[in-house]
Simulated assay, not measured.
Amino acid sequence: MKRLLLCILLLAGMHAAQAQYYKTDTTSSERKGFDPSRLMIGGTLGLTFGSYTNINVSPDLGYRFSEMFAAGATINFQYASEKWEYTNGTVKNSYNVYGGGLWGRFYPFEMLFLHAQPELNYVSVKITDNTVDPKSTVKESHTVPSLLLGGGYSQPLGEGGGSSFYIMVLYDVIQETWSPYQNRPVFRMGFNIGL
């Protein structure tokens, strides 16, 4: 049952994704003004359960301005908790992240892109230590800036360029103390289904 649930969650996470590829045709490239076919709707869905639990829901909305440039906005929500077992009790850390930011992509080649995403997140942390008597609970909150930089690859699926598979690697170059991205690369992958 756990494997079935894991497979379903993995497929859902891969489905909820960011639009990555837009191929203009002669009719849409001649249009003036707003073109709804250039909208990019998607986001990130991440789920991890166990002694370390992480739930990440980050929808985004963007627009493909040209074959070389796309930009948009994203909203972040993350919950995470981690538990350590000791002979005299447990220590549990949990945090919530709320925030958002803007993102931009530059496509120097048809299927390769560079990605920049400045964000401002509110991080709320709770540390509960049951190894001491009486139990200790510490709560803190911080406003944390991040700047995710990186790149990725987008592979169109089928004709027309509306659907694609993508994979990208990002890194928070600011590395503020309470950054939700810590000192590690951020991997994102999934599918975009064209409307």
Results as ranks from 00 to 15, higher is better:
113 F>R: 02
137 T>H: 00
111 M>I: 12
84 W>N: 12
147 L>W: 07
82 E>A: 11
124 S>L: 01
85 E>M: 13
133 D>T: 14
109 F>L: 15
112 L>D: 05
94 S>Q: 15
119 E>G: 15
150 G>D: 12
127 I>S: 12
106 F>H: 07
120 L>M: 14
125 V>M: 11
96 N>W: 14
141 S>D: 14
107 Y>K: 13
122 Y>G: 01
122 Y>E: 08
111 M>V: 11
134 P>F: 02
135 K>E: 13
141 S>C: 03
144 V>C: 04
151 G>Y: 02
145 P>Q: 11
110 E>L: 07
126 K>F: 06
132 V>T: 11
83 K>N: 09
104 G>L: 01
147 L>E: 03
96 N>H: 13
147 L>Y: 06
137 T>E: 09
116 A>W: 10
139 K>V: 08
83 K>P: 02
142 H>C: 12
147 L>C: 02
138 V>Y: 13
135 K>A: 13
136 S>D: 13
126 K>G: 02
139 K>R: 15
112 L>V: 15
125 V>S: 12
125 V>I: 13
109 F>P: 04
149 L>I: 14
123 V>W: 04
86 Y>E: 12
113 F>P: 01
82 E>C: 07
134 P>D: 00
107 Y>W: 06
85 E>Y: 15
112 L>Q: 06
110 E>T: 11
136 S>P: 01
104 G>Y: 08
83 K>Q: 13
86 Y>I: 05
136 S>I: 10
152 G>A: 07
146 S>N: 09
87 T>Y: 10
118 P>K: 08
95 Y>N: 11
112 L>K: 01
98 Y>P: 03
124 S>I: 02
92 K>Y: 07
152 G>C: 03
113 F>H: 06
141 S>F: 06
98 Y>C: 05
147 L>S: 04
112 L>M: 11
134 P>W: 00
111 M>Q: 15
112 L>N: 03
145 P>A: 08
148 L>M: 03
131 T>V: 02
117 Q>A: 15
107 Y>F: 14
103 W>H: 10
116 A>E: 10
94 S>E: 14
113 F>K: 03
